[in-house]
């Protein structure tokens, strides 16, 4: 019983952190702080993943996202400096903005209602799971068996992105070469 309360507490804290940081990402004026807030978001999500039995995913979240991606973000933001600042919500709400907010709100309500309808008992009955559910070994095995192709394609996409990084990096350098010439 105590364990349940503990899990609930962790869930509430993590969920709250997750939401707060998401709102922060979207609303901060300075991308640097937004990026930092995203790190908080990722970390709290990792906690939620752990609660859901996704050990490997949580670890990957922290390493891949929190480590690699965010470092890249922070590096770029630091490199660009104050060019990236933007006054959010400046100039009053445009019709477009009002429309989008309304549309997003409508989608949100719709989806939550949809889930509420479904939840009429179904989602509460969780599947019984083994202790090793979501362990690195299991996920790794799946990647090499049922999802072999997905695994391979993921690596190809990463490679393509790397090529893209190289090409776009050239872009920047070529421009400087032009400027010198």
């Amino acid at each position: 019983m105590a364990a349940n309360v503990l899990v609930w507490c962790i869930w509430v804290i993590a969920a709250f952190a997750c939401l707060a940081s998401a709102v922060a990402v979207v609303s901060f004026r300075n991308p640097f702080f937004s990026a930092l807030a995203l790190i908080g978001n990722l970390a709290s999500l990792a906690v939620l993943y752990l609660l859901l039995g996704g050990e490997f995913v949580a670890a990957a979240q922290v390493l891949v996202y929190g480590g690699a991606v965010m470092v890249m973000f922070l590096f770029v933001i630091a490199y660009l400096g104050d060019r990236t600042e933007e006054a959010p919500w400046a100039g009053g709400p445009s019709w477009q903005a009002v429309g989008t907010v309304l549309a997003a709100g409508a989608i949100l309500v719709e989806v939550i209602v949809a889930i509420g309808l479904t939840t009429g008992g179904e989602l509460t009955h969780e599947h019984h799971i083994a202790r090793s559910f979501g362990s690195p070994e299991h996920i790794g095995r799946l990647f090499l068996t049922d999802h072999l192709l997905a695994f391979e394609v993921t690596s190809i996409v990463l490679l393509v992105a790397a090529v893209g990084g190289v090409v776009l990096g050239h872009h920047a350098r070529a421009n400087e070469a032009d400027a010198r010439a």
Partner: peptide
């Protein structure tokens, strides 16, 4: 977690890699 098989988790890992790309 609901269905008790890890397909969703595998998908999520792949999504992380894609997001990084």
């Amino acid at each position: 977690r609901r269905f008790g098989h890890e397909d969703g988790q595998v998908f999520a890992v792949a999504v992380m890699a894609i997001a990084a790309s």
